[in-house]
Design a protein around this nucleic acid. Structure first.
Lengths: 200, 200
DNA sequence: GCTAACTATCTATGGGGATAGATAGCTGAC
DNA sequence: GTCAGCTATCTATCCCCATAGATAGTTAGC
């Protein structure tokens, strides 16, 4: 149930519509959290019912209407409470490593293709996160700059540092996954080099 | 839907009951995959209905009965097909990193406690996986030795190597998470050292 | 003025997993 | 002989999430 907390996190910056939030999920926190709009809209309704948010209808063009949400004191409190709570760690469930353990069942080429896909996937993530770090450093992250504008100057360093710390961790993890898959490619080659013994 | 494939993977070694499988999930592949028995039993029934398994009632004690499943050729084929298929990568959903990005909202002590819990969690995993690698190397992994006994000698090296490769990757990942959390602890200390400026 | 692309919201369905709990037989220790 | 702890299986509920699709208004360019 941290969709709720991810939404609260974004709404502590400024009032937004469900649509804004679904866009923000794609841009700002994509690959840390993701949710389709079909989950966001009902969750916002529930959060309003629980008193965490207040939604107000605002005109949009001549005839259209949209619903903007802002966080209440209760919502802010709930987010702070969650941030102070310990996290419960769920058991891993990792298809990539599950498959890796049984790679002898796959054709060597299929195995290679999968490891290459693993690499491609994490290289893409790595690129995105490097870009986020760049945005943090250059002050071109819209959400972060808005957040800083509403926060006392004494907290700016911490806010920036924690964001950077998070993305750096994700980058390092992506690099680990890339290296792991590359070792796997080497291993497949070694195991399929039947015609020649390893060099002495 | 890889619970099905995880079950197939285990059942390619030998016939087992739902209970055996639920135990094997805790022992052999815990932390790569996990499932409670309440998911395993119905899934086994479905797999039997789909022709992947055949279940036979065998007596257990004077009056008891248990149901042992073994993989059919279709089941073996389905597993091999899955192993040759590319994996679809789902977007990340990572509560620990989500929270890390907003650590300024937490009390410093609460933040420290969470990072310490992160470390403890991955140290525990690391210990378990190191033990698995040891079992692979010393030939004391029951499942692996059974698997090897049913496989041609020419494949033994590959089977052992892929298992080792998988666990080594998980160990490295756990170590990465530990290092990341340790850097976080340092960061919290730095940001809360208000009374003294950083040394020149 | 029309069309394409974007903004905005909602409903429906199904799968999978977490959690809880019910039932029943077996085994070994005291 | 009985009780604790293990083996064995099944059902039910709730929540979350993924996917698909329906609807409608807006904006900007041609």
């Amino acid at each position: 149930m941290s969709l709720r907390h991810a939404l609260l996190a974004l709404l502590t910056v400024e009032r937004m519509t469900g649509y804004d939030l679904s866009k923000a999920f794609q841009a700002s926190v994509s690959h840390v959290w993701h949710a389709p709009d079909s989950q966001i809209y009902p969750e916002l309704r529930r959060m309003e019912a629980d008193g965490l948010l207040v939604g107000t209808e605002v005109p949009w063009g001549p005839r259209g209407m949209k619903r903007e949400y802002h966080v209440t004191e209760a919502g802010r409190g709930a987010f702070r409470a969650w941030m102070n709570e310990p996290l419960s760690y769920t058991r891993e469930r990792d298809p990539a490593h599950l498959k890796a353990a049984y790679l002898e069942w796959a054709e060597p080429d299929a195995a290679r293709a999968q490891l290459r896909a693993h690499i491609a996937n994490f290289e893409e993530q790595r690129t995105e996160w490097l870009e986020k770090v760049r945005e943090i450093d250059t002050g071109t992250s819209t959400m972060l700059e808005k957040r800083l504008a509403h926060a006392p100057a004494s907290e700016h360093a911490a806010i920036r540092a924690y964001k950077r710390y998070t993305y750096e961790g994700l980058i390092a993890r992506a690099e680990h996954e890339i290296q792991w898959a590359e070792r796997g490619l080497t291993l497949i080659d070694e195991l399929n080099r039947t015609d020649a013994p390893p060099p002495a």
